[in-house]
Amino acid sequence: MLKTTFFGKGLKNPLVLASGILGTGSDILNRVGKYAGLVTTKSIGPVERLGNKNPCVLEVAGGIINCVGLPSPGYLHLEEEIHGINTPWIASIYGHSVGDFVKIAKHVSGFNPDFIELNMSCPNTSDGMAFATNKDASIELVKEVKKTTKIRVIAKLTPNVTNIVEIAKSVESAGADAITAINSVGPGMIINADVKKPVLSFKTGGLTGPMIKPIALRCVYQIYENVKIPIIGTGGILTGTDAVEMMMAGASLVGIGSATYKEGVNAFARIAKELESWMKANGYKEVKELVGIAH
């Protein structure tokens, strides 16, 4: 019942491991892939990068705040990481310039991921959000990457813009095959009253988890009304009903990240089961029937 397809790729369910969660190694991705339709790697960067110091992942009311900051062994080490992957996967990539993205996309394509996701919207580096907050920059980036690879390209967008629809239309016009919405919200900050300082090492961090679900739903809803390419709806999905709502807003697939907090990999099996129960109870036979019905 949960089986679906995305650009012809058969998936066991519409759940997608969001980028940055649980890691990049093929062993852990294969473990998640037993329960998730698709898994996304941590973003693969141009050079080895350490990311930020701790504390960089903490709980806040309603979710998680993080400033992990894109640690990556660098794209030239991808083979060691991804060797033996046996589940449908999305290679998430990031760079500081269009040239970086192009170079990495070309290299990554050699490993035949099912999709390439452009992380053009990370809030935890000095220039991470540059592409997805600027219409022209996002168009150029998607165009150039599309020229480089035959693999389908997904643009991951940030909600931290005045008008996400404008960016969504831009990446669609530039040839993006799909959109992931949304990246983390904010950034936000926590201060410890006893220490009298911000707690996160980077001072600020992106917000995720149930608190951002209404923002994610709104973004997906608006994007769905304005573009034709499919959407991976990500942000605060914790239950099967959350996933249903996200698809009703217009998501073809549903990203899962912070739900692994407390529950680990089991979150995928539980959400899939809840989604199936909801569909049975409400007379739906295929997840595709749910997409966009809130409009």
Binding site: L22, C56, K262
Partner: peptide, 13 residues
Amino acid sequence: RCGFGVCGACACN
């Protein structure tokens, strides 16, 4: 990093 099973920094296989 996180200590609570989200970030994947400590994965051993």
